[in-house]
Design a protein around this nucleic acid. Structure first.
Lengths: 240, 240
DNA sequence: CAGTGGTCTAGACCACACG
DNA sequence: GTGTGGTCTAGACCACTGA
């Protein structure tokens, strides 16, 4: 073959188009663009997917597809536990709290196992989205026993971060957090919250926060859109 | 709406079907399955995508779609740098070396910047796939100056791991590795190596290995199929 | 209301593996 | 050759936004 797949050619063409379009401008509609590039709409959409997943474009149903400017990247090491809000303040990147949902509930079997509590224990689930430049870039879910945090604790002057509340209260005393790192495909529910397409790629940090007594204080899922975050970890060389 | 999207219903049906099918067995062909489930082939394929990305099924062009048994999961902390081969031996999981490619080259501008060497410096690029149960689960690329590793060094009794060669030689002395963690969508070239579909989700570790003198000894990209690996990191609480 | 992106269909052709 | 998965098309209908 002298040429690559249609898909690759398309992505190159789209890349050029996106670079040449000023930030905030609308791209041609999908039917128009497909006709102009000589492909079907399905193929065009498939090729556009990567650019949306990387945060370079944003598609809004009923409105259009827009080019997003160079994003502020939040870069941080994972060794020290800190909230997104604290990180953003530290690197002077403006973020804001999107929709927040505080939901009291009783532990079902799966939740009880994750938190190592008895089934039926009163819990509180806090989920929220983080925005930069009015775009969702992270979706965070905290689940913890009401013993550690009552829904009322989150009423006044709440930044959105459950972690910051726990850290500043110094009760219960905290020991450490263990985070599992995964790459996942966005489920429809999560995709909707982050205003991306289902199936788009996300980085997931699934973390247990341990108290000084060894109990699990908080169990969290943090979904991040690639391109806005850069996490790193230092790995030591040796045998110990 | 009383029911969810077609896509979600389909995934639930597929999940049941996959669970009920013995490992190694072939699923019905895509046209048959689409007809049976009452959807188009395109929709069926979209729904199957998540299962392939998680390593639960494997599609082989010209052959069929097969159910993969419960995979051996390689779980490890990231604090200590070790090769996949060493990790696998430590947790007694059988892995084997797939295709390996050793490619001497001269540094272009981008490579020179990554390794902090002059353009035109002789380099060697080693790429390889890791298999468990004859299925690719990781694709690794090492790039380093020939000063540190000559292609000839990899001839006899080479396990596949550049890192292990460097560690066992104790020359040059190594200080640490810094790894960036990202979620990425599989590009066509990578997807082919890992026998997955382009666009499937992958975990990427992009790492610089530093020598004791502060120079970069090795620059690597490691792509992992989710479901076969579990990486975790311990995050400390506090202000320091 | 008109126009946008989101979903789904039916069918076609291709590349590949296996007999 | 036959049958598989991989790609692409043309068109339809829906849900949503904003004038």
């Amino acid at each position: 073959m002298t040429e690559n797949q249609l898909f690759q050619r398309l992505q190159a063409q789209l890349s050029t188009l996106i670079e040449q379009t000023p930030a905030g401008q609308r791209l041609p509609s999908e039917p128009d663009l497909a006709k102009e590039l000589g492909v079907s709409r399905a193929t065009l959409r498939e090729a556009m997917r990567a650019f949306e997943a990387q945060g370079q474009i944003r598609r809004r149903q009923g409105v259009g597809t827009f080019v997003v400017g160079a994003p502020g990247v939040m870069e941080t090491g994972l060794e020290l536990l800190e909230s997104i809000e604290t990180l953003a303040k530290r690197i002077q990147l403006p973020v804001s709290l999107g929709a927040i949902d505080i939901n009291p509930l009783l532990a079902d079997a799966a939740q009880a196992e994750k938190l190592r509590v008895a089934e039926g224990t009163p819990l509180v689930e806090v989920s929220r989205t983080i925005l930069t430049a009015d775009r969702p870039v992270a979706f965070l879910i905290d689940l913890l026993p009401q013993e550690y945090l009552l829904p009322e604790d989150l009423q006044q002057g709440f930044s959105g971060s459950v972690l910051d509340v726990l850290l500043h209260r110094s009760a219960p005393p905290l020991a450490r957090s263990v985070a599992q790192i995964q790459a996942v495909s966005a489920k429809p529910q999560i995709a909707k919250k982050l205003q991306i397409q289902r199936g788009d790629v996300l980085l997931l940090l699934e973390a247990q926060l341990y108290g000084a007594d060894g109990r699990i204080v908080d169990y969290s899922h943090s979904y991040f859109i690639p391109g806005h975050f850069r996490f790193h970890v230092v790995r030591r060389v040796g045998t110990a």
